[in-house]
């Protein structure tokens, strides 16, 4: 761990100016991810600008029926917020499925969205990793890759994005409000994350020094929603596969739906093919399976993660079966 300077930000603009001007500076929020990285030697900033006091505990209604969430809102507070629980239960479910009570008390909304991959090689400063040290190689491709991507990966990086919140935010069509040195811009969370391509060092489209100040949710989607997370322990583990799903039914037919996979790719994976296949159809078991298979057609597996294909398919089908009200009876294969 290298010595560093610490400054507590008093306003967003000057925080942005300070970090944007110094390539070795970083924003610090709850610190549950970044401080780990400092200890592990994965991140070595010379200056930390603490933004956790900015826009903390701020959840406001928007005129269009949506909700504005301050970037510093703690994961526990957001999950417990009565409006979130009543109108965006997907968000509460996703948050409560993540980490532990202690971590959620410290972790912030923006920090959660911008947490970095849990790839073990990325977190091991003695190992090569293209994301940490460009050009050093990707040991996960032939190594321990149980948790790694089956969709959208590149030969340079097969990491997954670990955030449960991010998958739910994509399903909710949320937008990040971003402040940069040149002013504010709005980035849909669905477009916030990058695929690794030939530059895995960048997780998102944000530039160095850009600060997320808030996340805005549109008016509730309606229908029924569910965040289903499958992992190697009953709690306190990252998703092998997760599904954030919202479905509106009408007359036994899927009127509209949003489907997002977590744990499968370098970004939350909007299952657009599956959505298209089901929109306007009756959700029979056959239709659900066909939709899941359509989405996973391009899956590319590694030595240790082939199971994610049937797991993703089965989890998606299982969640949709539940949300479409058992419109199709589960097959009894006993």
């Amino acid at each position: 761990m290298k010595p560093f300077a610490y400054r507590r930000a008093t306003d967003a603009r000057s925080a942005v100016a300070t970090v944007a001007a110094d390539p070795d500076a970083a924003f610090l929020a709850g610190g549950t991810n970044l401080v780990d990285h400092l200890k592990l030697g994965v991140a070595c900033p010379s200056l930390l600008v603490d933004v956790s006091d900015l826009a903390a505990d701020l959840v406001e209604h928007l005129p269009d029926g949506g909700l504005r969430i301050g970037a510093g809102t703690r994961n526990s507070d957001l999950a417990a917020h009565p409006v979130v629980r009543a109108h965006y239960p997907l968000l509460s479910e996703a948050l409560l499925s993540g980490a532990s009570g202690q971590l959620r008390n410290a972790a912030t909304t923006a920090g959660n969205l911008l947490q970095r991959t849990r790839c073990g090689y990325f977190r091991d400063a003695t190992a090569p990793c293209n994301k940490r040290e460009p050009g050093s190689g990707c040991p996960a491709v032939a190594g321990h890759n149980r948790h790694h991507a089956i969709l959208g990966a590149s030969p340079d990086c097969v990491a997954t994005h670990p955030s449960d919140l991010a998958a739910a935010m994509v399903a909710l069509d949320a937008t990040a409000v971003v402040l940069g040195p040149d002013g504010e811009r709005r980035v849909p969370i669905g477009g916030l994350y990058r695929l690794p391509g030939d530059d895995p060092t960048r997780d998102t489209v944000l530039a160095h020094g850009e600060l997320i100040t808030a996340v805005e949710l549109p008016a509730p989607f309606g229908g029924r929603a569910r965040y289903r997370k499958v992992r190697d322990r009953a709690s306190f583990a990252f998703a092998l596969v997760s599904v954030a799903a919202a479905v509106r039914m009408h007359d036994g037919v899927v009127e509209d739906l949003r489907l997002v996979f977590g744990g499968l790719a370098h970004r939350p994976w909007r299952a657009a093919h599956a959505e298209d296949a089901l929109r306007g159809s009756a959700p029979t078991e056959v239709a659900l399976r066909a939709a899941a298979d359509a989405e996973l057609l391009d899956a590319r597996t590694l030595s240790g993660n082939g199971f994610k294909v049937p797991l993703a398919r089965n989890t998606l089908v299982s969640v949709l079966r539940e949300l479409t009200d058992g419109a199709a009876e589960p097959e009894d294969d006993a």
Binding site: R118, G120, Y121, R123, D124, A127, P139, G143, H144, D232, R233, A234, S235, F236, A237
Partner: peptide, 18 residues
């Protein structure tokens, strides 16, 4: 690499409360 790929309690799972 010749060493444990998951050497911390986040990745090396031990049964937790749930």
């Amino acid at each position: 690499l010749g060493h444990t790929a998951n050497p911390d309690l986040g990745e090396y799972h031990i049964a937790a409360n749930a």
